[in-house]
Amino acid sequence: MRPQRPETAASARTAGSAGRTANGGQSPHVGLFVTCLVDLMRPSVGFAAVKLLEEAGCRVSVPRTQTCCGQPAYNSGDCAEAARIARQVVEAFEPFDYVVAPSGSCAGMLKRHYPALLAGGAIAPERVAAFAAKVHELTAFLVDVLGVERINARHDGRVTYHDSCSCLRELGIREQPRRLLRSIKGLELVELARPEECCGFGGLFSVKYGAISNAIVARKAADITATGAPLVLAGDLGCLLNIKGKLRREGRAVSVRHIAEVLAGMTDAPAIGEE
């Protein structure tokens, strides 16, 4: 469960620094954007994220003023409300070297949409751009920024991985989570037949257009079941709740976890929706 970085970074770390740092030799200070779904539904994902980040040499803080990234309002067309929330997030996280979220969806919102959303507002565009530049999704941060190549953990069995659309297409994250998973001893990664397809969650879409969302997640559930893996992972809790909800409704005995839980070796607790 100990992330391993390449030689140079590792030696730097033994010397008491964390490889690539933004503050001159100190361990990078990461502000964890917990995300509202992790906060409400699955706090252990937050602890797993903290553990991974600390193991990789970061200092982690959890600003208390964070709530939500504003997507529900933004995706409903309410830009004014979304911008007010966005401003609060930027102000809360500006002091950190990095902003890391265990979610492609929220990281994508902060990184890709805040600049447009906050354009012409109270915060100068350069400030928003600087903020957006230091936002990362958890697995991409570990691999791309911290240079983590292997996770020193063990997980016996087959696992399949669902790419969230925001990770895949908004942030271009495909290899990073797979590289980390493949480095785990005993873990066999089986790909889905259609890994690039949406699970049908889409935030409020899942309740506004429940019937359509259901038809989409039914296909995803079938693909997951077809892999024969007893465990499906993803980097976004929205997808995971949707997928678990469907698998459970269909009576399928597939467990569902956030990727951070497996990477951090924190799979003792019951999987999502199981107890």
Partner: peptide, 20 residues
């Protein structure tokens, strides 16, 4: 609107903020 088609997994318990 959700549970008509899917189960709603139960929250794990506590909020992250409080537990943290």
């Amino acid at each position: 609107a959700w549970t008509r088609y899917r189960d709603l997994p139960a929250p794990e318990g506590g909020t992250f903020q409080a537990r943290w």
